[in-house]
Design a protein around this nucleic acid. Sequence first.
DNA 1: TAGTTCATGTAATGAGTTACATGATTAT
DNA 2: ATAATCATGTAACTCATTACATGAACTA
Lengths: 197, 197
Amino acid sequence: MARTNKTQYAILGMLNYQPMSGYDIKKISDHSIGHFWNENYGNIYPVLKRMMREGLVTMDIQQGGSAPPRKVYTITAKGRQFFLDWLAGSPERQILREELLLQLFFGQWISPNIIEDKLHNESAFCSAMIKNLQQIKAHLEEDHGKNLPEQSVGTFAAGRPYWKMTVEFGLRYYQGIREWCDASLHELSQIDKGEKR
Amino acid sequence: MARTNKTQYAILGMLNYQPMSGYDIKKISDHSIGHFWNENYGNIYPVLKRMMREGLVTMDIQQGGSAPPRKVYTITAKGRQFFLDWLAGSPERQILREELLLQLFFGQWISPNIIEDKLHNESAFCSAMIKNLQQIKAHLEEDHGKNLPEQSVGTFAAGRPYWKMTVEFGLRYYQGIREWCDASLHELSQIDKGEKR
DNA sequence: TAGTTCATGTAATGAGTTACATGATTAT
DNA sequence: ATAATCATGTAACTCATTACATGAACTA
């Protein structure tokens, strides 16, 4: 079972809103799905090229005077079908592979202080992510399509509940990990006590 | 910054308990760190080979009569140092890349029923994982080194609190996702109502 | 004038997964 | 008899990351 390239679905999903350049796709991805999905230029450009060969997208070059030319990609009917087929199919789960947990598992071989540092770090990272996600959430709740071009208000309004769910995932995810960090730190302090007694 | 091979640390961590074959490493990994870390034979064997060249491990061939020969690997002083250095260093975080969330983000383009199915599936998967982890947890709590060879009781007893923390992580992780599924399903039912009115 | 953003891409690298290949032994 | 387990490995693949390369325009 050959693992399918998922970058293409993220790209097609973006192009399904409106035609864009590879650069746009990267920027918009970062600000919309960036909290749970990452893409690099080094992957976006080659995939766009391939998808054009396969007839999933078309491309238009826009010469911007002296500015560098923009290659604007548009999703085709075939591309939209391909995208929708994927969308209805079952998602592959990301398998957990956390280096922190691997180190923690072997925790007996180093000083508890180092473990504590790791957990504090992780907890702080989660806090930063949570703060970030709360801002996105607030933004999604307050802004009801004010600054959008008129014909796209419908599309964007219809997407918002789903976008919120992904943000909600992130919030619970990082809150959960932070709580675990705190609980583990508490456990560690018990171990320390036990050793000193 | 070249991403470091992490398989080697998992392997060294196992060999740090006792000498083992590649086959043993796979089996023991599956049953100890398997809930947050996966390794394949196709990776373990080549990495062992490389680590032997680098002097991180040594190898002994044990001929088991007519049985296939076992290649038993032992960690060296150099290997142990390498392992401990990694253990004290800061872990790389796994970046989130959840196909379910990507599909959910684009949820407006398919029927809410399909989304509901996806969420139910995910919830069921989490339940299965939780059940599994609760058994591991119970096992870790009841068994206090009864069936272990005497000289290793100390090592294994000292590891247990850390092993429990990784199990606790898994429990909270899957419980968190399951709660999110339920909350999202509830939200979806609200959207449905709104559309029908 | 120096740094950031706009905008495109290629090349190198590697890490990990999957499929393939072999063959004996043990349990059902 | 057949399936699962013990036991080792190679080859293909591909997905994704990082570094490299270029150059204009805008901003502080």
